[in-house]
Design a protein around this nucleic acid. Structure first.
Lengths: 231, 231
DNA sequence: GTAGATTAAAAAATCGATTATCTTGTCTAA
DNA sequence: TTAGACAAGATAATCGATTTTTTAATCTAC
């Protein structure tokens, strides 16, 4: 089965023009940064990156600049690029913001979503459930998980809200995906995903939001544990 | 009097490293884009920009990439950079998001702000009131206005919330600052600024939020009018 | 005339090399 | 010993030129 089937919910934000070397590096680096392939606080050796991503200096620097504006890198005066440090405070901040913004988006999505959305949602949930988490170091599951949450809030009606949520997810995942593999509470999370779909289809905004709060809270606990083990 | 006195509230976000050509261009271009110095939808002629900002190709492209990630430009596959189009829908989206996020931030700021904040707030409001709106094409007033709103929400406790608010302000100003000069309802806005400070000092979160809603709504009406006149 | 192919000019993206700045190790003087 | 100055090497930022792609004008076949 072709996993790269187009799903309705498209990412919102600075994805950049596909096809250029610069955007290829941007996507790849973004994935690596979110997936914890770099150490927080680490200074990036540009020449090493050139080799790693098989790209010239100019497109690489352009990608790094975009990532810095996006918040996945920090740039220091004449001192190149760094992976941002992690902190308990920031994790709390990000989780709190996710609660507010995804809750808001979910309520709006439930108010606006049409039957096409319902179908997308069921499909996304199904794919996620079926996903083999051991495959490809969990990348496949991660992708479908992102896609599920994207779909959930997609018809909220605000491009900017979606954009901010996307950004917060990336930031959150820097914590959640610290260390070796996925946590083992997957079953619990999957159950929540399933129930979220149920409540969305029933258009029960209040209950859905409460469950979403709980879901984010559970993810937060995972992320916090990983962060504390990591320090 | 030196207007570049350091005020407590610093901008949050992808300001980039000061001192490099790239960041100088970023700041300058950002100001020009927010201030309506470019036509929405316009394609940027890179060579013209090189001359305009007296900078080489590489730092210019790096700045453009950062602005694209920030949302003040869009980049199309092999087709360079464009100033994003304006639309009624997006204006409504931005205004709605401002209501939600600045309201939230203001409530938190009122809960957290200390006496230093109170002093900063009074100072920022005073400067804004004293500002000569005819000076420097209103740039001086714009700067102090931005600074006032920054100060108002500064102690909200969330770096990400501040960042998103900053971004929304920039986007909003693309509409509000369309066309020739400032609107004439300045007195009314100034009165609201004054009252906002009053309510903040009294720690009346509920009333402050309501006033903030009204304030944003008034700004929205200005922006909408300008947008409609502009189309 | 018009749709589609062709090609010359323009523009975008990238590369290789240069310049400016920082970092690190060493030396000197107190 | 240690603080500060200095120099050499490493790294970041920028420039000028090349390559690739798009755009727009022209041509050809129908």
């Amino acid at each position: 089965m072709n996993n790269s089937l187009p799903t309705s919910a498209k990412p919102v934000g600075p994805v950049g023009p596909a096809g250029t070397a610069s955007s290829r590096v941007f996507d790849h680096l973004r994935k690596d940064l979110v997936g914890g392939r770099f150490v927080a606080g680490e200074k990036l050796a540009i020449n090493a990156l050139k080799e790693r991503y098989q790209v010239g200096l100019s497109p690489l620097r352009e990608a790094l600049n975009r990532l810095a504006a996006y918040g996945l890198l920090v740039q220091e005066n004449q001192r190149g690029f760094r992976v941002p440090k992690l902190s308990r405070d920031e994790l709390d901040d990000i989780a709190q913001m996710r609660l507010e913004m995804e809750g808001m988006a979910l309520e709006r999505a439930i108010a606006n979503g049409d039957s096409l959305w319902e179908a997308d949602l069921l499909a996304a949930a199904h794919r996620l459930k079926r996903a083999d988490i051991t495959l490809d170091k969990g990348e496949e599951w991660e992708h479908l998980h992102t896609q599920f949450h994207r779909t959930l809030v997609a018809p909220c009606g605000s491009v900017w809200l979606l954009r901010f949520i996307e950004q917060l997810h990336d930031q959150f995942d820097r914590y959640r995906r610290l260390g070796p593999k996925m946590p083992t509470i997957r079953q619990e999370l999957d159950e929540q995903h399933h129930q979220l779909v149920e409540l969305a289809l029933q258009r029960d905004a209040k209950a859905a939001r409460e469950l979403m709060d709980d879901h984010i809270h559970k993810s937060y606990e995972v992320a916090l544990k990983r962060y504390q083990e990591h320090v």
